[in-house]
C-alpha cells in the first residue's frame, strides 16, 4: 500500500482535491459585521419567513447548497456525495436539505468543527478516486441554538462575558478532482481533548487546548513551521480562546502572533456587543466560504491552515455536571502545492 500518511494524524494528498467553488449565506447580524461584502447573500430577516427557527436554519442550509450548484451550473445529479452537518439534535437541518437534494448523503457531526470533518472526509473520498464532485456544508442559527443549548430567547438572563454568539448562516463548498487552485494538500484529524472545563458559556476556554494540540500535531507530522503559512485561522475560539491558543502555542515554542486569527473573532466587530464574538458550525463555514476563499482566489493568501474547533457538548450531560470534550481538525489549503516536499 502506498503510504500517504504523515506521522500519527496527518494525511498528505499526492493528487490534492480542488476547492472548485463555495457559497455562503448569513443572517442580518453577520451582514452588519466586518466581512459583510464577502458573503453571497445576506438575509435581512433571520426567520426567512419560515414558521420556526429550525425551518429557517434548514432554509439557510438548502439555499447555500442551491447557490453553490447554481454558480457552477451543476445539478444535484452531477454530485456524487453530499456531506454535512449542523448543531441541532440529530443534525436535522442538514438531513432535510439532503432530502430535497436527493444526493447520496453522509450526515456528520463535530459541533462547530463539522465543516472541517466534512471537508476531510470529502477530500479522502476524492483523492481515493471514489468520487468526482462532492458538496459539503455546515450551518447554524442563533435562535435555534440558543433554545437547544441555553435559555429561551425572551428570558432576561445576563450573558457572561465569555459567552459567544452563535452565527446564523450556512456555508457550502464544492470539492472536485481537478487541476485548478486552491488545493487541499494536507488534513490533520484531531484527537478529542478535555481539560475539565464544564461551563457551556465558556467554550473558547474549553476548546483552546484542542486547537493547540491539533496545530502542534500538524507541525510535528508535516514539518511545517508557522512561517510557512500566510494565515493560520481557527474556527470559533472567540476572543478568550484566541488569546489562550496564541499563548499556549508560544509556550510550546511556536510564535504565531503575526499570522494567526480566529473566524469567530473576525466575523463580528467590537461594537456588535456579542461578548466573546462568534461561534457555531456556521461560523467557520461562512468565514471560509465567504472571506478566505475569496482571498485564496485573489492570491492575497496562498497557503493557509484552517482549523475549525468544536465543543462536543450535549446539553443533557452538561446539566448532569459532565465536562466538555473538544476537537479541532486542521486543513492545509494551498494555491501552489510544493508536491514532494517531505517532512523531515
Amino acid at each position: 500500500m502506498k503510504n500517504n500518511r504523515l506521522g500519527r494524524q496527518t494525511i498528505r494528498f499526492e493528487n490534492p482535491p480542488t476547492i472548485l467553488n463555495t457559497a455562503s449565506i448569513v443572517g442580518p447580524k453577520e451582514g452588519e459585521g466586518p466581512l459583510r461584502d464577502y458573503f453571497d447573500k445576506v438575509e435581512c430577516d433571520d426567520t426567512c419567513k419560515e414558521k420556526t427557527f429550525e425551518k429557517a436554519e434548514e432554509y439557510f442550509c438548502n439555499e447555500s447548497v442551491e447557490t453553490l450548484l447554481h454558480k457552477e451550473r451543476l445539478k444535484s445529479g452531477d454530485i456524487d456525495y453530499y456531506i454535512g452537518g449542523d448543531l441541532l439534535n440529530q443534525i436535522i437541518s442538514t438531513s432535510f436539505t439532503a432530502k430535497k437534494l436527493g444526493i447520496p448523503y453522509f450526515g456528520v457531526y463535530s459541533a462547530c468543527a463539522t465543516f472541517a470533518e466534512a471537508i476531510q472526509l470529502a477530500s479522502c473520498i476524492i483523492a481515493g478516486e471514489f468520487a468526482l464532485n462532492i458538496v459539503v456544508s455546515a450551518s447554524s442559527h442563533f435562535s435555534s441554538a440558543e433554545r437547544q443549548y441555553r435559555s429561551p430567547l425572551e428570558s432576561g438572563v445576563q450573558r457572561k462575558m465569555t459567552a459567544q454568539w452563535t452565527v446564523t448562516g450556512a456555508g457550502s463548498m464544492l470539492l472536485t478532482q481537478n487541476s485548478k487552485p486552491p488545493y487541499i494538500t494536507h488534513v490533520t484529524t484531531g484527537i478529542v481533548q478535555d481539560y475539565g472545563i464544564k461551563e457551556a458559556d465558556n467554550m473558547g476556554t474549553a476548546m483552546a487546548p484542542a486547537a493547540v494540540e491539533t496545530i502542534l500535531s500538524h507541525f510535528k507530522d508535516t514539518g511545517y513551521k508557522p512561517d510557512d503559512y500566510d494565515l493560520i485561522i481557527t474556527g470559533d475560539l472567540g476572543t478568550v480562546g484566541k488569546d489562550i491558543t496564541m499563548d499556549l502555542l508560544l509556550r510550546e515554542g511556536f510564535d504565531v502572533s503575526k499570522n494567526y486569527t480566529d473566524c469567530g473573532v473576525e466575523i463580528y466587530d467590537e461594537s456588535q456587543d456579542t461578548h466573546a464574538r462568534g461561534s457555531g458550525a456556521g461560523c467557520s463555514a461562512v468565514v471560509f466560504s465567504g472571506y478566505l476563499f475569496d482571498q485564496l482566489n485573489k492570491k492575497e493568501l496562498n497557503k493557509i491552515l484552517f482549523v475549525p474547533t468544536g465543543a462536543l457538548l450535549s446539553p443533557t450531560t452538561t446539566l448532569q455536571g459532565d465536562t466538555i470534550p473538544c476537537i479541532a481538525h486542521a486543513i492545509t489549503i494551498e494555491n501552489t502545492p510544493e508536491l514532494g516536499k517531505e517532512a523531515k
Binding site: 447580524k29 433571520d46 435562535s143 429561551p152 430567547l153 446564523t168
Partner: peptide
C-alpha cells in the same frame, strides 16, 4: 398563557 398566544419569540439583535 395569554402572552404566548399573542406573541412569538423574536431573535435577539
Amino acid at each position: 398563557y395569554l402572552a404566548s398566544i399573542f406573541s412569538h419569540s423574536k431573535s435577539k439583535k
